[in-house]
Design a protein around this nucleic acid. Structure first.
Length: 449
RNA sequence: GUGGGUAUAGCUUAGUUGGUUAAAGCGCCAGUUUGUGGCACUGGAGACCGUCGGUUCGAAUCCGACUAUCCACCCCA
């Protein structure tokens, strides 16, 4: 491999063998978002750096040390987006979308950029599917958003995903809690690990998240946010759980769930999987009622979540989930000789105009090699064109799965004859698939026993 | 930013205490009597052994630096 022909650190090419899976997953997301009344929004890959400093928070690691920031030729400080919410909020304000009625509900499929050290499920360029809703203050909105994420994972057939929720309260009750937590931790300051010592001032709630055993020991009896929630926040959180129960969505309340971005308030949640490495969160989100006002807009309740696409695909891979892929080629037309090649091309072209996936030889290969190629690409049918066929205006359509051949005319009726044969074959294949799925289920059952 | 592992054809790997033209499987291309895929067999292409430097008569093999990658901390989706 040429030394300089490598993608930059932390980036990955998505090759055709994988891009079909990406598309199928994205299709499910778009469809489910649309079912829930969310519409797509597309915002720029880069924004003014200040936007992220103000929204994500200028004390967060994401902004402080992970942003791709540069000066453009007009000396403006520009940053590649490290997440999706900031741009959406900016667009909401810029176009005064809130005036068009509430709630405003958006989804996006984007790439994000963070200068981080790479590891499993963590890249410098990564992709997110996200949803944001504005103007909905009621707790049912929290549950509805979680339900949306939940159904996407269900539809993709992902197993063993746990939903953990928490409330981190509003700024008022959180301040009280911070004070209490800090007071508690000061007592055992000496036993905290170095990073937690730093966190004591910056973000004491993070200490609850620490994996160091000694810190875990200390925080075991630490005060929990739940006991410090003001009445409104407590009622809101209670109601969210009621709605989740009503929708029969399983969850656990984890008082240690803390989000790293400054803008979150009240409900926060994560979908967690054991099939990832250290990066176990595949989806994270929550409410951010203060952000829009903080960005210069009117007080607007808001909430959202983001799914890490790479992480999601990693889980699917680990669980052996394969989405059904449509065939790449429905008809391959093999040819022998120049005249037949011209005819094969003309036929292929005609098929394309009828939106049928068709291919003919591009490499001047022997008939045998052409058949091998057709087999390799998974062609459903093949047709061989040679002197005899051209002379008789008649050829044999071969079903590559069964080997069965049916005569077809090379005249005007060709297209309809082919479509009829394909439709019949597909019915037969659908039947086989049913039988297969029955076998598969009993196989699964057998595995369990 | 910190720590540890790894780096040999497109992919997965072998390469013995440093010693001739670096090996295999898969994949790719072609062929196995002339017009039909999957199986089998035969052949072929494809590697400056991550990069640069050092030790040595001689380095894929030993040493150093750099780069990339993986795992973990941290952070987050």
């Amino acid at each position: 491999m040429a030394a300089n022909m490598q993608a930059p650190k932390g980036t990955k090419d998505i090759l055709p063998k994988d891009s079909s899976t990406w598309q199928l997953v994205e299709d499910v997301m778009r469809d489910e978002a649309s079912i829930h009344g969310f519409e797509e929004i597309r915002t720029p890959v880069f924004e003014r750096t200040e936007l992220f400093e103000r929204s994500v928070g200028d004390t967060t690691d994401v902004v402080q040390k992970e942003m791709y920031t540069f000066l453009d030729k007009g000396n403006r400080s520009i940053s590649l987006r490290p997440e999706g919410t900031a741009g959406v909020v900016r667009a909401l304000l810029e176009h005064a979308l809130i005036n068009e009625g509430v709630p405003q509900k958006f989804y996006y499929l984007i790439s994000c950029y963070r200068y981080e050290n790479t590891q499993e499920g963590r890249q410098r360029e990564f992709h997110q599917f996200g949803c944001e809703a504005f103007g909905a203050a009621a707790p049912v909105a929290d549950a509805e958003l979680i339900a949306l994420a939940h159904s996407i994972f269900e539809r993709l057939g992902i197993r063993n995903l746990s939903l953990e929720i928490n409330s981190i309260g509003c700024p008022e009750c959180r301040a009280k809690y911070h004070a209490a937590l800090k007071a508690f931790l000061e007592a055992s300051k000496a036993e905290l690990c170095d990073t937690c010592l730093e966190r004591l001032d910056k973000n004491p709630m993070r200490i609850l998240d620490c994996k160091t055993p000694s810190c875990g020991e200390i925080t075991k009896n630490a005060p929990v946010m739940k006991d410090y929630l003001c009445q409104e926040c407590a009622e809101h959180f209670e109601a969210v759980q009621e709605y989740l129960d009503a929708a029969e969505i399983e969850y656990t309340v984890n008082p240690r769930i803390v989000r790293g971005l400054d803008y979150y308030t009240r409900t926060v949640f994560e979908f967690i999987s054991n099939d990832l490495g250290a990066q176990s969160t595949v989806c994270g989100g929550g409410r951010y009622d203060g952000l829009v006002k903080q960005m210069g807009g009117a007080q607007t309740p808001a909430l959202g979540f983001a799914v890490g696409m790479e992480r999601l695909l990693l889980i699917m891979q680990a669980q052996g989930i394969h989405l059904p892929e449509p065939p790449v080629c429905e008809l391959y037309i093999a040819s022998l000789g120049k005249q037949a090649q011209v005819k094969a091309f003309a036929f292929t072209n005609m098929l394309h105009q009828a939106s049928i996936k068709a291919e003919c030889d591009m490499c001047d290969r022997s008939l045998k090699a052409q058949m091998k190629y057709a087999d390799k690409i998974g062609a459903m049918f093949t047709l061989v064109l040679g002197d005899d066929e051209l002379k008789n205006n008649q050829a044999e359509l071969k079903n590559m799965k069964t080997g069965e051949k049916t005569p077809v005319s090379l005249g005007d009726t060709f297209l309809t004859e082919f479509v009829a044969a394909a439709a019949q074959a597909e019915n037969i294949m659908a039947l086989n698939m049913d039988e297969l799925s029955i076998d598969f289920e009993s196989f699964e059952q057998f595995e369990k026993e």
